[in-house]
Computed example of a mutant assay.
Amino acid sequence: MSYGGLVKLQSILLSEILGVKEVKVTNVDKGINVIKKMLNGKKLLLVLDDVNQLDQLNKLVGRSDWFGSGSRIVLTTRDKHLLIAHQVNLIYEVEKLDHYESLKLFASWNSFSRNGHLKDEYAKLANNVVDYADGLPLALMVLGSHLCGRSIDQWKYALDGYRRVPNREIQEILKISYNALEDAVKEVFLDIAFFYKGLGEDYVIQMLEG
C-alpha cells in the first residue's frame, strides 16, 4: 500500500470513529499525530482486515497507548510475522475447513442445496469441488456462487476448466496466500508443485531436506 493509501485510511479511521463527514489528513506523519491526539483516551474496538505491510500497523494503530484503556485492536493477515514484529498480544491461527465443513459452506452458496445438503446428482461433483478448493473458505464461496443455478453438464464443464485453467478469482485468492510466504518457503512450494507433484510425502521430505 502506498503512502497515499495510508493517508486515505487514516482519514477514514478518524472520520468513522469521530462520527464526522471528513477529517482531512495531508501526510502520514500528521495523520499519526492527529490519531494520537483525537483518539487518546477513547475506548475502541478497531478491526483492520487483510494487513500485508508492517507500515500499515505502525501508521494506523501504532502502540497501545494511542487509544484508551480497554481498547481492542483486531488484525487479520496472512503474514504471521507482521503480528510478531508489531508485538501483538494474542495470535490466533485460523485452520482450513475440513471436508465436511467445506461441503456445508459450498452447499450454502448453491441453489441446489436443501437445508445445507446438495441433491444427490450434485453431491459427487461437489466433493470434487471441495477437493479443488482445499479448505479455503473464500475459494468455496467463489465456486459456490459461480456454479449456483447451473446444470450438471455445466458443473462438469466448469470443473474440467478449473483443472486446466484455474478460475481467475480463485487464482487471486491463492496468489495472496502465496505472496505472504517467505522466499525460502516459496522455493519449496514451487519445487513441490513442479517436480514432486503426486509423489509420497516421506519421499518429498527426504529430497527437500537433502
Rank of each mutant, 00 (worst) to 15 (best):
Ala85Gln: 14
Asn115Val: 02
Val94Trp: 11
Leu143Cys: 01
Met1Lys: 15
Lys156Cys: 05
Cys148Thr: 15
Glu209Pro: 00
Glu16Cys: 11
Glu93Trp: 05
Val7Asp: 06
Glu22Thr: 08
Gly210Ser: 01
Gln53Ala: 12
Tyr122Leu: 14
Lys30Val: 15
Ala180Gly: 08
Val20Thr: 15
Ile91Met: 05
Gln87Pro: 02
Ala193Tyr: 03
Glu169Ile: 02
Ser113Phe: 06
Ala158Met: 05
Ile170His: 04
Asn27Met: 10
Val94Gly: 06
Asp191Lys: 09
Lys24Arg: 13
Asn89Pro: 01
Val74Met: 14
Asp153Leu: 12
Val94Phe: 09
Asp49Gly: 09
Glu101Ile: 03
Asn27Arg: 11
Met207Ser: 02
Leu97Thr: 07
Leu190Arg: 10
Gln171Gly: 15
Ala158Leu: 01
Val129Tyr: 00
Val204Asp: 00
Leu45Glu: 08
Asn179Cys: 08
Phe106Met: 05
Asp134Arg: 07
Trp66Phe: 09
Leu75Arg: 05
Leu14Trp: 13
Asn52Tyr: 11
Tyr92His: 15
Asn110Val: 09
Gly41Thr: 07
Gly70Ala: 09
Glu182Arg: 13
Trp66His: 06
Ser111Gly: 04
Leu90Pro: 00
Glu187Thr: 03
Glu182Ala: 11
Gly62Phe: 08
Tyr157Gly: 01
Asp55Arg: 14
Tyr178Cys: 03
Asn58His: 13
Gly41Trp: 07
Glu187Tyr: 03
Ile17Thr: 07
Phe194Trp: 07
Lys175Ile: 00
Ala123Thr: 13
Tyr132Arg: 02
Glu95Gly: 10
His99Asp: 14
Phe189Val: 06
Asp29His: 14
Arg72His: 06
Lys197His: 14
Ser64Ile: 14
Tyr100Ser: 12
Leu48His: 12
Tyr3Pro: 04
Lys96Val: 12
Gly149Cys: 03
Gly144Asp: 01
Ser69Phe: 13
Lys186Ile: 04
Leu60Gln: 08
Phe189Glu: 03
Ala193Phe: 05
Ala139Trp: 01
Ile73Val: 14
Asp50Leu: 09
Ser15Val: 05
Arg72Ser: 08
Val34Glu: 12
Glu169Arg: 10
Leu39Cys: 08
Ala126Tyr: 02
Ile32Thr: 09
Leu118Gly: 05
Ile84Ser: 12
Lys124Ile: 11
Asn33Met: 13
Arg63Asn: 15
Ile192Glu: 02
Glu16Lys: 13
Ile12Tyr: 12
Ala184Cys: 06
Asn89Glu: 14
Thr77Phe: 09
Gln56Tyr: 07
Asn52Ile: 04
Val61Phe: 04
Met38Tyr: 08
Arg78Val: 04
Met141Gln: 15
Asp131Lys: 15
Asp79Pro: 05
Leu39Asp: 05
Leu147Pro: 00
Val204Ile: 13
Glu93Gly: 07
Gln171Thr: 10
Lys30Arg: 12
Asn89Gln: 15
Met141His: 01
Arg168Glu: 11
Glu101Ala: 15
Tyr162Phe: 14
Met1Glu: 15
Gly116Lys: 02
Asp98Asn: 14
Val188Ser: 00
Tyr196Asn: 00
Phe195Arg: 04
Lys21Ala: 11
Leu44Tyr: 11
Asp120Thr: 11
Leu140Thr: 03
Ser64Thr: 13
Lys96Glu: 12
Leu136Phe: 11
Glu169Pro: 00
Lys42Phe: 12
Lys175Ala: 09
Asn115Leu: 07
Pro166Ala: 04
Phe67Gln: 09
